[in-house]
């Protein structure tokens, strides 16, 4: 063992394989993020419904898929669902029969459960008075949701969303247990071939770190763009025609 724990040659040789692994990790992040979010909306509406028959199942969903460790969820989907005869013979076996499908299902359900709570918290953070003002303007409930509640909820919940996405990315590292060769699995297999305990894992760590921080930066930029209303005036878009006349006083306030 030399002073530097990293074998640079090995690292260089492993890069292509690790990069392939990273792509799998990226894919296993992106798809469940989309599916999970899509699931989270209806479940969140049910959860917030005053009707007990809707709220209770949604709550049970959240408690179970949020409270169960991801690894157990993955085992449950991968090993457990195969037990169900109807599923095994049904058309969905394309999904549940493959490790990839199982991983996506387990990750999506887990993400959905977390997102229900993120969404709910963000929607509840929207000041009631603003919703009321929209109602008083005669805006329909659907439009209030689309144009007032959701845009504001996004601003209030962005930090929580970022945290969830980041911890979700890190959570995907377990998929190797169902034989998927993601970034972690690639690092592990290089270790098994070379018995170098540092090089592959530290390289994988660098990839994870870069991916996670790319997401963080993305969220920061997004957040800054969303909260531009707190920071400065809207960029001076050329206002249509006659509107310009009233803007003579603008020059003073524009930095």
């Amino acid at each position: 063992m030399n002073a530097l724990p990293i074998d640079l040659d090995l690292a260089w040789e492993s890069l292509p394989a690790l990069f392939d692994g990273l792509m799998v990790t990226v894919f296993l992040t992106a798809l469940p993020l989309i599916i999970g979010l899509a699931l989270a909306f209806p479940i969140c509406f049910a959860r917030m419904s005053p009707r007990r028959a809707l709220a209770l199942p949604a709550e049970i969903f959240v408690v179970f898929f949020r409270g169960a460790p991801l690894l157990i969820l993955l085992y449950l989907v991968y090993y457990g669902l195969g037990q169900i005869e109807a599923l095994r013979n049904g058309p969905f076996w394309i999904v549940f029969g493959s490790p990839f499908g199982c991983a996506i299902v387990a990750l999506s359900l887990n993400h959905a459960a977390y997102m229900v709570e993120v969404l709910r918290g963000s929607l509840l953070a929207v000041p009631h008075g603003i919703v009321e003002a929209s109602e008083a303007l005669g805006i329909t409930r659907r439009n209030i949701f689309l144009w007032v509640r959701m845009p504001l909820a996004l601003r209030y919940g962005l930090k929580a969303y970022q945290n969830e996405v980041v911890s979700f990315v890190k959570g995907t590292a377990i998929v190797s247990v169902v034989t998927i060769t993601d970034l972690m699995a690639v690092a592990n297999s290089i270790f098994e071939q070379t018995y170098d305990p540092f090089t592959p894992i530290l390289c994988a760590a660098a990839f994870y770190w870069a991916f996670v921080n790319l997401i963080r930066v993305g969220f920061t930029v997004w957040g800054r763009w969303l909260s531009r209303h707190n920071a400065e005036d809207a960029p001076l878009a050329i206002p249509a025609g006659q509107a310009l006349q009233g803007l003579a006083g603008r020059a003073k306030v524009t930095p």
Partner: peptide, 30 residues
């Protein structure tokens, strides 16, 4: 509600929209 306009104690403006956009939202949607 189309016939009745309301002004509140705490303004309740849409914080994510400019003054102009605050005024434009309801006419555009309704």
């Amino acid at each position: 509600r189309q016939e009745v306009g309301m002004v509140f104690q705490h303004f309740n403006l849409f914080p994510h929209l400019t003054a102009l956009e605050n005024c434009m939202l309801a006419p555009r949607l309704n």
